[in-house]
Write a protein that binds this DNA or RNA. Structure first.
Lengths: 265, 265
DNA sequence: CAGTGGTCTAGACCACTGG
DNA sequence: CAGTGGTCTAGACCACTGC
């Protein structure tokens, strides 16, 4: 047990300290959970960047003054949450939205026949990217004060020439200072990969609310469909480390040749 | 290592035997994976029924002649797949669709405001349950020959008096022999729980394809909505053990007061 | 209090990767 | 070949449950 450590290790994980809170719940936290938090902090602080390898399990065990098995369990959980990727014989790497074998990790829309690979990459077009005051609902979702500055992006995704997705995004202006339509247009690769490399913001997980809605004003033109055509409305809130909401995205999906795929278990 | 076992243990897990396949791939399989398969077979064979406790880790370790840690890792994975449920201090239990704190584990439709608990349980009405020959697409999805007998069930779910979901189900007739509208009507609890207790069929996972469609003939009447109203079309294939498809379900969801909720990571 | 799952360790060995 | 993650073991101890 690393409890008796006196040499300056790192941030000493101490079960006893954590347990010694105020009256309430004992708040017992296993060692590996504490290690997990420490690793998380290093990820968050940018000590290891997306795509890079983190130190080996043995190195981390020495650094945190615990056994390899304990580090292992911490990494196991982080890998299960898709924050880290293990590769036998090579190392453990920080997950990234770039250079993954799937183009868009959070996009669940697939072509009805054949697989996505036969379809080729989506064609993207940025319609606008402007700075504005946050509407009340967006501010609430992002944890901002109503009226705080946000960036709004509108874009279209097309598959094989057919415009299929119209999306509006809202991002807090502060962390994304300098984001322009030009930059979005010229970047090759997923938008979330650009966010990682340019702004150090990594999208970790997201929640989506899905509804069926009739097509109205701007969507009918942009997606070239008759008014009232049923569309899939996908409202996403994406979170970065520490469950901090960092993006609101509202998408309208045509589902005449594609479908939203979901796995339940 | 249990390789040298000569006393009749159970079904001796032998890495070497598995590796000794034909030329092709070496097909190395860790011990814990082999234990996992053995546990899976016991689940499948009904040795432990849904809701029951399986033997303790130590008992299983003795039975399979491996260490507790190896059994533990096998159970960990089965628990991660929602086939088993661990309860500290009590034991490990076979997962069940009955008596879970969520009413329908596979239903992702939630009320827009408030949580599902404030809404109360769904009211259910069976419209029909008939035996027929499988249409080609259903037969294909279920791995049957076209024309094989299937049961078709049509039902409506209503929330607070508002009919919201119209569902059609197809089940292979053989395993569900004796299923009637009467039985479905009188059963209290999720339909999947009835399938477990009455027919020994446990739904393990499912895939859903989601689209937006305009309401047409039967749905307009049953859900009491105008023709053309956008509805969420949810096509589900549910699988039992061994990835065997066992149910096709086509649902039409009203999403004016509810939404389909999904988590991405 | 006994029995269960949960944590932690230490050490041995295996499988995979790349130089 | 060395270095990495992956497997397996054995044993000690902890936390939770229910009798």
């Amino acid at each position: 047990m690393p409890i008796t450590s006196n040499a300056p290790a790192e941030t000493l994980p101490l079960t006893s300290e954590l347990s010694a809170g105020l009256g309430g719940t004992p708040a017992f936290s296993p060692l590996y959970q504490q290690i997990k938090v420490l690793i998380l902090q290093s990820l968050q602080g940018g000590e290891w960047k997306p795509g890079e390898a983190i130190p080996s399990e043995m190195d981390l065990a020495v650094r945190f003054r615990v056994s390899q098995g304990t580090v292992r369990k911490a990494i196991d959980e982080l890998a299960a949450e898709n924050l880290l990727v293990r590769r036998q014989g090579k190392g453990t790497f920080v997950a990234t939205h770039a250079a993954q074998h799937v183009q868009y990790r959070f996009l669940r829309l697939l072509p009805d026949s054949g697989d996505a690979s036969t379809e080729g990459p989506a064609e993207r077009r940025i319609i606008e990217c402007k700075r504005q005051r946050a509407p009340a609902d967006i501010a609430r979702a992002l944890g901002l004060r109503s009226g705080d500055a946000v960036l709004q992006v509108r874009r279209v995704l097309a598959f094989q020439g057919v415009p299929t997705i119209l999306e509006d995004l809202w991002l807090p202006a502060a962390p994304f200072k300098g984001l322009t339509a030009e930059r979005l247009d010229t970047y090759r690769g997923p938008m979330y990969a650009l966010f990682e490399t340019e702004f150090g913001v990594r999208m970790v997980r997201a929640e989506e609310k899905i509804r069926a809605l009739p097509a109205t004003a701007p969507a009918t033109d942009i997606l070239d469909i008759p008014e009232g055509t049923p569309l899939l409305s996908v409202e996403r809130i994406a979170y970065t480390y520490n469950d901090l909401p960092i993006e609101v995205r509202r998408g309208l999906y045509r589902t005449d040749t594609h479908h939203y795929q979901n796995s339940l278990s």
